[in-house]
């Protein structure tokens, strides 16, 4: 190795003294190399932290980052930081357009949309409960070749099922006819072909007897419908009183007697009573008991 003695004069005339050399060597040994000189400008950092550019020409160290935490950028000149929450096994990270994201449970009402394919529907192992008490289900159209209204390829019925799985409504342009119960007005109008007759309202139909009875000459009832009593006011003179009245005295009553020698005839009537007289065939002006009386009445019920 060749040594030289200071000062040293370079060919361009500049002089390097011993003092200059001592200063440079000390700086290299005890100081840092700044970012512009290819260094970091750092002599240490925070344990668990990371270095970051605090300016265009300087690095700095962040605070310690929580174990397993997600790292959030700090923006220009600011240190990155850890997301405060680690979340739980039942939460997911929700984005935030203007701030830090957060962990939260999935809200089905606001977080989920789109159509769930039938193949992706999970198997149910318990009861479905709904706060509103109803679950609307729309059936898909049946494929070509189906017959009858339920298999219609042009009609989409809607079935509404309540929380207990009961069908509470079924609507369709063609299928509703068989499932909706007729009202009293519809039964009395007797014209609808899109509602169904139910046992509790059958008697409102104009073609159905509103009351009937069978009784003997003493007025003792053997069988009856909508009948409260028979009143005997004389031989061959009985009054039949019904439960629910007709809407007026204009109703049709028919009566026959179980005795070949008598004929029954009807007297002017009230909405809830019908006087029936029995006369002998040979004595038409004299009332005569019939062995057994039969009567039925038709009309509009109140």
């Amino acid at each position: 190795m060749a040594w030289f003695t200071a000062p040293v004069t370079f060919v361009d005339g500049s002089i390097l003294t011993a003092s200059d050399l001592n200063t440079t060597v000390t700086t290299i040994r005890d100081g840092t190399v700044t970012v512009p000189h290819g260094g970091t400008g750092l002599v240490g950092g925070t344990s668990g932290g990371i270095p970051y550019f605090s300016s265009a020409t300087a690095l700095a160290t962040s605070n310690a980052l929580t174990a397993n935490a997600l790292l959030l950028g700090g923006g220009a000149g600011a240190a990155p930081s850890a997301l405060a929450s680690l979340g739980t096994t039942t939460t997911v990270l929700h984005g935030n357009a203007s701030g830090a994201p957060t962990f939260a449970a999935v809200a089905l009402a606001t977080d989920v949309s789109g159509t769930l394919a039938a193949a992706q529907f999970p198997a149910l192992t318990g009861d479905i409960t709904t706060s509103a008490g109803a679950l609307a289900t729309t059936l898909a159209n049946a494929g070509p070749g189906a017959t009858g209204p339920i298999g219609s390829t042009t009609v989409t019925p809607v079935i509404t099922i309540d929380a207990k799985g009961r069908v509470t409504a079924f609507t369709s342009a063609t299928i509703a006819a068989g499932l909706a119960a007729a009202t009293q007005a519809e039964m009395e109008a007797a014209s609808s072909t899109t509602v169904a007759t139910t046992p509790g309202r059958t008697h409102y139909h104009p073609g159905v007897a509103k009351a009937w009875a069978k009784w003997n000459d003493a007025g003792t009832i053997a069988a009856s419908y909508n009948t409260t009593s028979i009143t005997d006011t004389g031989p061959g003179d009985h009054t039949w009183t019904i439960g629910t009245d007709f809407s007026s005295s204009d109703f049709a009553a028919v009566a026959v007697g179980e005795l070949t020698s008598v004929t029954l005839h009807i007297r002017p009537q009230a909405a809830g009573t019908q006087q029936i007289l029995s006369a002998g065939v040979d004595t038409p002006f004299s009332n005569t008991d019939a062995t057994t009386w039969h009567a039925a009445a038709f009309g509009d019920q109140a």
Partner: peptide, 21 residues
Amino acid sequence: HCACFTLPDGTVGIVRPNPVL
């Protein structure tokens, strides 16, 4: 049982209620 009543002309009426009722 049955019930008996009298009309103004003296006629006697006998009401026999529906036994099921």
